[in-house]
Simulated assay, not measured.
Amino acid sequence: MRHLFSPDGLAALDAVISRAPLVGFDFDGTLAPIVPRPETARVPLPLRHRLERLSALLPVAVVSGRSLPDLSDRLGFEPRYTVGNHGAERQGGTSAAGHELDGLRDWLRRYAAGLHAAGVVVEDKGLSLALHYRTASRPDHALATIRELLRPFGAALHTFPGKMVENVTAPGSPDKAVAVHDLVRESGAPCAVFFGDDVNDEPVFASAPADWLTVRVGFDDRETQAAFFIHHTQEMVPVIDRMLARLVADA
Protein backbone atom coordinates (compact mmCIF):
# COMPACT_ATOMS: atom_id res chain seq x y z
CA MET A 1 0.00 0.00 0.00
CA ARG A 2 1.45 3.35 -1.05
CA HIS A 3 1.31 6.69 0.75
CA LEU A 4 -1.12 9.15 -0.80
CA PHE A 5 1.65 11.75 -1.00
CA SER A 6 3.82 9.51 -3.14
CA PRO A 7 4.08 10.50 -6.81
CA ASP A 8 1.58 7.80 -7.78
CA GLY A 9 -0.81 8.83 -5.01
CA LEU A 10 -0.77 12.52 -5.87
CA ALA A 11 -1.28 11.75 -9.54
CA ALA A 12 -4.26 9.53 -8.67
CA LEU A 13 -5.71 12.18 -6.34
CA ASP A 14 -5.38 14.96 -8.94
CA ALA A 15 -6.93 12.80 -11.64
CA VAL A 16 -9.98 11.78 -9.63
CA ILE A 17 -10.61 15.28 -8.23
CA SER A 18 -10.58 16.65 -11.77
CA ARG A 19 -13.63 14.42 -12.45
CA ALA A 20 -15.72 16.07 -9.67
CA PRO A 21 -16.26 12.97 -7.52
CA LEU A 22 -18.32 12.36 -4.43
CA VAL A 23 -15.90 12.72 -1.52
CA GLY A 24 -16.75 10.50 1.44
CA PHE A 25 -15.24 10.42 4.91
CA ASP A 26 -15.58 8.28 7.97
CA PHE A 27 -15.70 10.36 11.18
CA ASP A 28 -13.86 8.83 14.15
CA GLY A 29 -10.21 8.25 13.31
CA THR A 30 -10.56 10.00 9.96
CA LEU A 31 -11.98 13.50 10.40
CA ALA A 32 -11.75 13.46 14.19
CA PRO A 33 -8.89 11.91 16.17
CA ILE A 34 -9.68 8.87 18.29
CA VAL A 35 -10.13 10.06 21.89
CA PRO A 36 -10.56 8.18 25.18
CA ARG A 37 -14.05 9.63 25.63
CA PRO A 38 -15.99 9.37 22.34
CA GLU A 39 -18.44 12.09 23.42
CA THR A 40 -15.62 14.65 23.18
CA ALA A 41 -14.71 13.92 19.53
CA ARG A 42 -14.93 16.89 17.15
CA VAL A 43 -13.54 17.85 13.74
CA PRO A 44 -10.52 20.10 14.43
CA LEU A 45 -11.07 23.72 13.45
CA PRO A 46 -8.41 23.93 10.66
CA LEU A 47 -9.88 20.86 8.98
CA ARG A 48 -13.43 22.09 9.47
CA HIS A 49 -12.74 25.30 7.55
CA ARG A 50 -11.29 23.35 4.64
CA LEU A 51 -14.23 20.94 4.59
CA GLU A 52 -16.60 23.90 4.41
CA ARG A 53 -14.80 25.07 1.28
CA LEU A 54 -14.70 21.60 -0.22
CA SER A 55 -18.43 21.09 0.42
CA ALA A 56 -19.19 24.20 -1.63
CA LEU A 57 -17.39 22.69 -4.63
CA LEU A 58 -18.07 18.93 -4.51
CA PRO A 59 -20.69 16.58 -3.04
CA VAL A 60 -19.27 15.64 0.36
CA ALA A 61 -20.55 12.81 2.54
CA VAL A 62 -19.75 11.76 6.10
CA VAL A 63 -20.45 8.05 6.62
CA SER A 64 -20.08 7.06 10.26
CA GLY A 65 -20.79 4.32 12.74
CA ARG A 66 -22.35 6.93 15.01
CA SER A 67 -26.04 7.72 14.99
CA LEU A 68 -27.03 10.80 13.00
CA PRO A 69 -28.14 12.84 16.05
CA ASP A 70 -24.78 12.12 17.69
CA LEU A 71 -22.83 12.89 14.53
CA SER A 72 -24.52 16.15 13.53
CA ASP A 73 -23.24 18.19 16.48
CA ARG A 74 -19.63 17.12 15.97
CA LEU A 75 -18.92 18.15 12.40
CA GLY A 76 -18.96 21.94 12.44
CA PHE A 77 -19.77 22.04 8.72
CA GLU A 78 -22.65 20.88 6.52
CA PRO A 79 -21.84 18.05 4.13
CA ARG A 80 -24.41 17.30 1.45
CA TYR A 81 -24.94 13.82 2.90
CA THR A 82 -24.61 12.25 6.32
CA VAL A 83 -25.02 8.54 6.96
CA GLY A 84 -25.00 6.89 10.40
CA ASN A 85 -25.05 3.48 12.03
CA HIS A 86 -22.47 1.98 9.66
CA GLY A 87 -24.64 2.69 6.62
CA ALA A 88 -28.10 1.84 8.01
CA GLU A 89 -29.27 5.38 8.84
CA ARG A 90 -29.89 8.08 6.26
CA GLN A 91 -31.17 11.62 6.46
CA GLY A 92 -34.93 11.63 6.13
CA GLY A 93 -35.41 7.97 7.05
CA THR A 94 -33.73 4.72 8.00
CA SER A 95 -32.88 1.59 6.08
CA ALA A 96 -33.28 -0.89 8.90
CA ALA A 97 -35.41 -1.56 11.96
CA GLY A 98 -33.85 -1.27 15.41
CA HIS A 99 -36.33 -3.72 16.96
CA GLU A 100 -34.31 -6.59 15.45
CA LEU A 101 -31.78 -5.97 18.22
CA ASP A 102 -34.30 -6.07 21.07
CA GLY A 103 -33.35 -9.62 22.05
CA LEU A 104 -29.73 -8.57 22.45
CA ARG A 105 -30.74 -5.51 24.43
CA ASP A 106 -32.61 -7.72 26.91
CA TRP A 107 -29.65 -10.12 27.11
CA LEU A 108 -27.17 -7.31 27.79
CA ARG A 109 -29.38 -5.84 30.49
CA ARG A 110 -29.45 -9.27 32.14
CA TYR A 111 -25.65 -9.31 32.28
CA ALA A 112 -25.14 -5.58 32.91
CA ALA A 113 -23.26 -6.13 36.18
CA GLY A 114 -20.72 -8.46 34.56
CA LEU A 115 -20.15 -6.07 31.67
CA HIS A 116 -19.65 -3.18 34.06
CA ALA A 117 -17.17 -5.22 36.12
CA ALA A 118 -15.20 -6.00 32.93
CA GLY A 119 -15.08 -2.31 31.97
CA VAL A 120 -17.47 -2.65 29.03
CA VAL A 121 -19.74 0.27 28.14
CA VAL A 122 -22.82 -0.47 26.00
CA GLU A 123 -23.85 2.26 23.56
CA ASP A 124 -27.29 1.83 22.00
CA LYS A 125 -27.51 3.73 18.71
CA GLY A 126 -30.95 2.46 17.72
CA LEU A 127 -29.94 0.63 14.56
CA SER A 128 -26.73 -0.73 16.02
CA LEU A 129 -25.11 -1.43 19.37
CA ALA A 130 -21.50 -0.72 20.29
CA LEU A 131 -19.77 -2.47 23.17
CA HIS A 132 -16.80 -0.30 24.07
CA TYR A 133 -13.85 -1.46 26.13
CA ARG A 134 -11.33 1.36 25.55
CA THR A 135 -11.19 2.23 29.27
CA ALA A 136 -11.17 -1.38 30.56
CA SER A 137 -8.24 -2.19 32.86
CA ARG A 138 -7.92 -5.61 31.17
CA PRO A 139 -8.90 -5.12 27.50
CA ASP A 140 -8.35 -8.78 26.55
CA HIS A 141 -10.66 -9.92 29.34
CA ALA A 142 -13.26 -7.30 28.37
CA LEU A 143 -13.22 -8.43 24.73
CA ALA A 144 -13.51 -12.08 25.76
CA THR A 145 -16.49 -11.18 27.96
CA ILE A 146 -18.20 -9.40 25.07
CA ARG A 147 -17.65 -12.23 22.61
CA GLU A 148 -18.86 -14.85 25.07
CA LEU A 149 -22.08 -12.89 25.61
CA LEU A 150 -22.63 -12.49 21.86
CA ARG A 151 -21.82 -16.11 21.02
CA PRO A 152 -25.35 -17.55 21.59
CA PHE A 153 -26.79 -15.22 18.94
CA GLY A 154 -24.60 -16.61 16.16
CA ALA A 155 -25.85 -15.67 12.71
CA ALA A 156 -28.90 -13.91 14.18
CA LEU A 157 -26.68 -10.84 14.51
CA HIS A 158 -23.93 -9.27 12.46
CA THR A 159 -20.92 -8.43 14.63
CA PHE A 160 -17.65 -6.83 13.60
CA PRO A 161 -14.75 -5.33 15.54
CA GLY A 162 -13.51 -1.79 15.63
CA LYS A 163 -10.90 0.11 17.58
CA MET A 164 -11.53 -1.12 21.14
CA VAL A 165 -15.18 -1.82 20.33
CA GLU A 166 -17.39 -4.65 19.11
CA ASN A 167 -20.24 -3.47 16.85
CA VAL A 168 -23.54 -5.25 16.34
CA THR A 169 -26.12 -4.72 13.59
CA ALA A 170 -29.04 -6.74 12.31
CA PRO A 171 -28.22 -9.16 9.47
CA GLY A 172 -28.95 -7.57 6.12
CA SER A 173 -28.50 -4.00 7.36
CA PRO A 174 -26.89 -1.78 4.71
CA ASP A 175 -23.18 -1.30 5.30
CA LYS A 176 -20.99 1.63 4.33
CA ALA A 177 -20.35 0.19 0.88
CA VAL A 178 -24.06 0.12 0.09
CA ALA A 179 -24.42 3.66 1.39
CA VAL A 180 -21.51 5.11 -0.59
CA HIS A 181 -22.53 3.44 -3.86
CA ASP A 182 -26.08 4.76 -3.34
CA LEU A 183 -24.74 8.27 -2.75
CA VAL A 184 -22.65 8.19 -5.91
CA ARG A 185 -25.75 7.33 -7.91
CA GLU A 186 -27.88 9.89 -6.07
CA SER A 187 -25.37 12.71 -6.48
CA GLY A 188 -24.74 11.99 -10.15
CA ALA A 189 -20.99 11.95 -9.51
CA PRO A 190 -18.94 9.81 -11.93
CA CYS A 191 -16.86 8.25 -9.15
CA ALA A 192 -15.90 8.58 -5.49
CA VAL A 193 -13.04 9.24 -3.13
CA PHE A 194 -13.38 7.60 0.27
CA PHE A 195 -11.29 7.93 3.44
CA GLY A 196 -11.68 5.57 6.40
CA ASP A 197 -9.66 3.99 9.16
CA ASP A 198 -11.46 0.95 10.53
CA VAL A 199 -12.98 -2.45 9.81
CA ASN A 200 -16.38 -1.03 8.88
CA ASP A 201 -14.73 1.03 6.11
CA GLU A 202 -13.23 -2.01 4.42
CA PRO A 203 -16.44 -2.91 2.51
CA VAL A 204 -16.15 0.46 0.72
CA PHE A 205 -12.51 -0.19 -0.13
CA ALA A 206 -13.24 -3.73 -1.29
CA SER A 207 -16.20 -2.76 -3.49
CA ALA A 208 -14.67 0.34 -5.08
CA PRO A 209 -14.42 0.29 -8.88
CA ALA A 210 -11.01 0.84 -10.41
CA ASP A 211 -11.70 4.53 -11.10
CA TRP A 212 -12.45 5.35 -7.45
CA LEU A 213 -9.77 6.45 -4.99
CA THR A 214 -9.70 4.77 -1.56
CA VAL A 215 -7.47 5.88 1.30
CA ARG A 216 -6.81 4.21 4.64
CA VAL A 217 -6.12 6.60 7.53
CA GLY A 218 -3.43 4.96 9.65
CA PHE A 219 -0.87 2.35 8.68
CA ASP A 220 -0.65 -0.83 10.75
CA ASP A 221 -0.38 -4.57 10.29
CA ARG A 222 -4.02 -5.12 9.43
CA GLU A 223 -4.77 -6.03 5.85
CA THR A 224 -6.73 -3.47 3.88
CA GLN A 225 -8.27 -3.17 0.44
CA ALA A 226 -7.54 0.58 0.27
CA ALA A 227 -5.33 1.72 -2.59
CA PHE A 228 -3.38 4.32 -0.59
CA PHE A 229 -2.86 5.43 3.00
CA ILE A 230 -2.08 8.47 5.11
CA HIS A 231 -0.52 8.16 8.54
CA HIS A 232 -3.05 9.94 10.75
CA THR A 233 -5.93 12.43 10.87
CA GLN A 234 -3.55 15.41 10.89
CA GLU A 235 -2.65 14.61 7.30
CA MET A 236 -6.24 15.29 6.25
CA VAL A 237 -5.45 19.03 6.19
CA PRO A 238 -2.82 18.83 3.43
CA VAL A 239 -4.98 16.30 1.59
CA ILE A 240 -7.91 18.71 1.47
CA ASP A 241 -5.55 21.55 0.54
CA ARG A 242 -4.38 19.48 -2.44
CA MET A 243 -7.98 18.83 -3.48
CA LEU A 244 -8.86 22.53 -3.26
CA ALA A 245 -5.78 23.53 -5.25
CA ARG A 246 -6.69 21.03 -7.98
CA LEU A 247 -10.25 22.34 -8.13
CA VAL A 248 -9.02 25.94 -8.42
CA ALA A 249 -6.61 24.95 -11.17
CA ASP A 250 -9.41 23.22 -13.08
CA ALA A 251 -11.88 26.10 -12.69
Rank of each mutant, 00 (worst) to 15 (best):
A210T: 14
A170D: 13
Q91N: 01
G98Q: 12
W107D: 11
A11N: 02
V62G: 10
A192K: 03
E148C: 14
A177L: 10
G76D: 09
L47I: 01
V165K: 07
F77Q: 12
P7A: 15
V184M: 05
D8P: 01
L57D: 07
E100A: 07
A15D: 12
D241K: 02
R105V: 04
V184K: 04
L68I: 15
A208S: 13
G162I: 02
L108Y: 03
V60D: 13
A170G: 08
E78K: 15
G114I: 08
G98K: 09
V165L: 15
D102P: 02
H116Q: 05
P203M: 12
I240K: 00
R50W: 04
T145I: 05
F228N: 07
Q91P: 00
A177D: 12
F77P: 09
G98L: 10
T233H: 11
R242A: 12
L51Q: 09
S95Y: 00
D221C: 12
G84T: 04
Y111G: 06
E223W: 12
S187W: 05
S6Q: 11
A179G: 03
F27I: 03
E235G: 01
V215H: 04
Q234D: 14
L45R: 11
M243D: 05
R42D: 07
S55A: 15
V16M: 09
